Lab assay of single mutants.
Amino acid sequence: WIARINAAVRAYGLNYSTFINGLKKAGIELDRKILADMAVRDPQAFEQVVNKVKEALQV
């Protein structure tokens, strides 16, 4: 799951650890299995999560 998430978030200019930190700051409580599945099956929803994380990180 970690490898999938890392590959997906790198397309948005983040790395895995920064993304996970941003999830916590944004108050998003999705587990890694769901995030990895979302990255593959629903990229639009995953992009929305990434955008919320970037807002929380102020990137």
Rank of each mutant, 00 (worst) to 15 (best):
I2G: 01
I2Y: 13
A3R: 09
A3H: 05
A3Y: 03
A3L: 04
R4F: 09
R4L: 15
R4Y: 04
N6P: 00
A7S: 08
A7Q: 11
A7H: 11
A7F: 07
A7R: 14
A8P: 00
A8L: 03
A8R: 03
A8K: 03
V9C: 08
V9H: 00
R10D: 05
R10W: 05
A11Q: 13
A11H: 08
A11K: 14
A11V: 14
A11P: 15
Y12C: 03
Y12E: 02
Y12G: 02
Y12N: 02
Y12V: 03
Y12W: 08
G13T: 01
G13I: 01
G13E: 04
L14T: 01
L14S: 01
Y16A: 11
Y16Q: 02
Y16E: 01
Y16M: 01
T18F: 03
T18M: 08
T18C: 13
F19W: 02
F19S: 00
F19P: 00
F19G: 00
I20T: 09
N21T: 11
N21M: 10
N21G: 08
G22V: 02
G22R: 02
G22Y: 03
G22C: 04
G22M: 03
L23A: 06
L23T: 03
L23Q: 02
L23V: 08
L23H: 01
K24Q: 07
K24V: 11
K24P: 05
K24A: 10
K25Y: 07
A26C: 09
A26Q: 06
A26D: 01
A26Y: 02
G27A: 09
G27T: 06
G27C: 06
G27Q: 10
G27F: 07
G27S: 09
I28M: 14
I28P: 02
I28W: 04
E29H: 13
E29K: 14
E29N: 12
L30Y: 08
L30S: 07
L30N: 08
L30H: 05
L30P: 11
L30G: 05
L30D: 06
D31Y: 10
D31R: 13
D31P: 12
D31F: 14
R32I: 15
L35A: 05
L35E: 01
L35C: 05
A36L: 11
A36Y: 14
A36Q: 02
D37T: 13
D37Y: 09
M38F: 05
M38K: 03
M38D: 02
A39D: 04
A39M: 09
A39H: 05
A39W: 05
V40E: 15
V40W: 12
R41V: 12
R41D: 13
R41I: 14
D42M: 11
D42H: 13
D42S: 11
D42Q: 10
P43T: 11
P43E: 06
P43S: 06
P43F: 11
P43L: 09
P43Y: 05
Q44T: 06
Q44G: 12
F46I: 02
F46D: 00
E47A: 09
E47F: 07
Q48W: 10
Q48A: 14
Q48R: 12
V49H: 04
V49R: 02
V50K: 01
V50G: 01
N51F: 15
N51D: 10
N51E: 11
K52A: 05
V53P: 00
V53D: 00
V53E: 00
K54R: 10
K54M: 12
K54V: 11
K54C: 07
E55K: 11
E55W: 07
E55F: 07
A56I: 12
L57A: 08
L57I: 13
Q58H: 07
V59R: 11
V59G: 09
